[in-house]
Design a protein around this nucleic acid. Structure first.
Length: 550
RNA sequence: GCCCUUAUAGCUCAAUGGAUAGAGCGCGAGUUUCCGGAACUCGAAAUAGAGGUUCGAGUCCUCUUAAGGGCACCA
């Protein structure tokens, strides 16, 4: 990754300047490399001089000049390959300083050409990173109670979690996707009452009526458990499959109780002196870990609370399944639970391994008016309805575009109307167009040629502005993966896909691929094939189809 | 009352503290000898308000206004 290489040479330059020029000792800050918005400033730029200026009280322009003097472009290559022939300087057309102290890097055409071959060589592995170092990560998402169908609200985490897990996999982590099934507790009893249609019934809807007919049990708890099983199997699991999500584990809360894991966790906490009795209940000292107050784990009636199960659940994740990291994707309504759970994990020494990402709520809009979604009141739009109307690709793209912090305004009729103009088709169209071109290559058997002939040394150089811009987009893909690993902002992917598709469409408009000029045709076909690879990898990681025709 | 999110173009959303704030839809004006016009080109249009920190603020801090969520022996 060229961005990483630039980061390294800058870091090395700072280190050397620090030594040679006897700058005061300071810890070298993280080197930030970014893409300038204005293309005139080059492909990559760093603000390190301004950062250093603050630390050592010198003029940032002076610092930048000094850094450039010490830039050792040689570190771009492993030492044994540093031959005069393959001058690493050739990677850059120019390296310049711009006020107030930016150092701007412009890639050479030669370097850009070479990236086409590199992408063709790597194929569907292009974008894979090693930063995960094979560490075990679990991503738990959706985990909606098995008391009704998945709504557009509680399934929002579906595309997000699924794609985050895919990205982690791409970055070299070993990843598991999990759904925690809350099949224990009050809501199951309430579900039972609802199915029996007695005084304590709360859930409503056609599916409840249906369950009432099917379930013969008269005991509310048993009726509830049976109903939950049916809902999970026939509604929730089917919807997740329709959404294109494959969970590796459906983890039942009930099993934590059956196997005694909850009991065991409580005993351990008691030994750590973190549990005490008050007013007939058992309390966990979560206030020791920053919570506002202590929380009940065993109620006066001897039933365990959700927290008790959750502690056992996470001990299972960390101690039995040995995850190095667990990422939970929760709805914003569970914000209050974070501190107590994190506190409990801290007491077991797993504090920093648990990451919780909150997704803001989806509000329903109808004719511009907001309505509260409520499963109990029967006011909601199910994910199935949306999938029926819009289809998986548009649904996934739509949700993926949104940052988790966005309070999503959702209007079903608008979603339907807009689905035909959905940006996902813009991206898919680019892919289909490419495949159409590739089909026209003589002696091409398969629709999408997998064994594309890598151009030999006669490879004609591409110099057109649109060609080079397309390559610039292509090589960003691994950067996107790296960025998402850092901040979990998955929406970078759909926006990248749009940028890439746009770069291709512009190239297509301007550059005739199949022409009389054989060398040029060959070179452009290579670029087109490379684009197809990257587009496909991007769509695949988002769980969106890359059609060869549409 | 306290805590967490959010407020960007008419609408739905982007923008690791960087240089001229981007898309899509909608609106206005255009593009066909040729590989797929589901495309391309051009235009109008936005950082809720007030202070502050910084060489530099949509982004960080404080206050105000507005929206959503939380503050259970529910999950």
């Amino acid at each position: 990754m060229i961005r990483e290489e630039i980061r390294e040479i800058i870091q090395e330059a700072v280190r050397r300047v620090q030594q040679e020029e006897k700058w005061p000792g300071f810890k070298i800050p993280e080197i930030q490399i970014e893409h300038p918005e204005n293309a005139g400033f080059g492909d990559y730029s760093t603000n390190i001089s301004m950062i250093l200026a603050g630390l050592i009280k010198k003029n940032p322009m002076e610092i930048a000049k000094l850094l450039i003097k010490y830039l050792d472009l040689g570190v771009l290559l492993p030492i044994r390959r540093r031959t005069p022939k393959s001058s690493p300087k050739s990677k850059f057309k120019k390296i310049e300083i711009a006020r107030p102290g930016f150092i701007n890097f412009t890639l050479s055409k030669d370097y850009l050409q070479k990236q086409i071959k590199e992408i063709l060589k790597q194929g569907d592995k292009f974008g894979q990173l090693k930063i995960g170092k094979n560490k075990k990560v679990q991503v738990e998402f959706i985990s909606a109670n098995p008391t009704g169908p998945l709504t557009v609200g509680n399934a929002r985490g579906g595309p997000f979690g699924d794609v985050l897990a895919n990205v982690l996999k791409m970055a070299g982590f070993r990843v598991e996707k999990a759904y925690y099934v809350n099949d224990y507790g009050m809501q199951i009893l309430t579900l039972g009452h609802s199915v029996l249609k007695d005084k304590e019934a709360k859930y409503k809807g056609a599916y409840i009526d249906e369950l009432s007919k099917r379930i013969k049990e008269k005991d509310p708890e048993k009726a509830g458990q049976k109903a939950a099983k049916i809902i999970l199997k026939e509604m929730i699991q089917k919807t997740t499959v329709r959404l294109g999500i494959k969970f590796d584990e459906w983890f039942s809360e009930q099993t934590l109780y059956d196997s005694g894991q909850v009991e065991k966790a409580l005993i351990t906490l008691k030994k750590k002196n973190l549990i005490y009795e008050k007013e007939g209940a058992l309390w966990f000292k979560s206030s020791k870990f920053g919570d506002e107050k202590d929380r009940v784990v065993v109620k006066a009636n001897d039933f365990k609370t959700y927290l008790a199960g959750d502690i056992a659940h996470h001990l299972y994740k960390f101690e039995k399944k040995k995850f190095d990291k667990v990422i939970n994707i929760w709805g914003a309504d569970h914000y209050g639970d974070m501190k107590r759970l994190k506190g409990a994990m801290e007491s077991f020494g797993h504090k920093d391994k648990l990451k919780i990402i909150f997704l803001q709520f989806v509000s329903l809009l109808e004719k511009g008016e907001g309505i509260k979604m409520s499963k109990r009141a029967g006011v909601y739009v199910t994910m199935d309805e949306l999938l029926d109307k819009v289809g998986i690709d548009a649904v996934r793209f739509f949700f993926l575009q949104k940052s988790p912090d966005t309070h999503l305004n959702f209007d079903l009729s608008l979603a339907k109307e807009q689905s035909e103009k959905n940006p996902v088709y813009y991206v898919q169209y680019a892919h289909a167009r490419i495949c159409s071109i590739l089909r026209k290559i003589p002696n091409q058997k398969s629709q999408i040629p997998n064994k594309f002939q890598i151009p030999n040394s006669k490879f004609k150089n591409l110099t057109n502005h649109f060609e080079l811009n397309l390559i610039r987009q292509l090589i960003r893909f691994p950067e996107i993966i790296e960025d998402i690993i850092k901040d979990y902002q998955v929406q970078r992917l759909p926006y990248y896909a749009l940028d890439l598709a746009a770069a291709f469409h512009k190239f297509y408009k301007d550059c005739r691929v199949l022409s009389e000029d054989k060398l040029l045709t060959q070179a452009r076909l290579a670029l087109v094939k490379a684009t197809q690879i990257v587009l496909k990898n991007t769509l695949e990681i988002m769980g969106i189809r890359a059609p060869s025709k549409m």
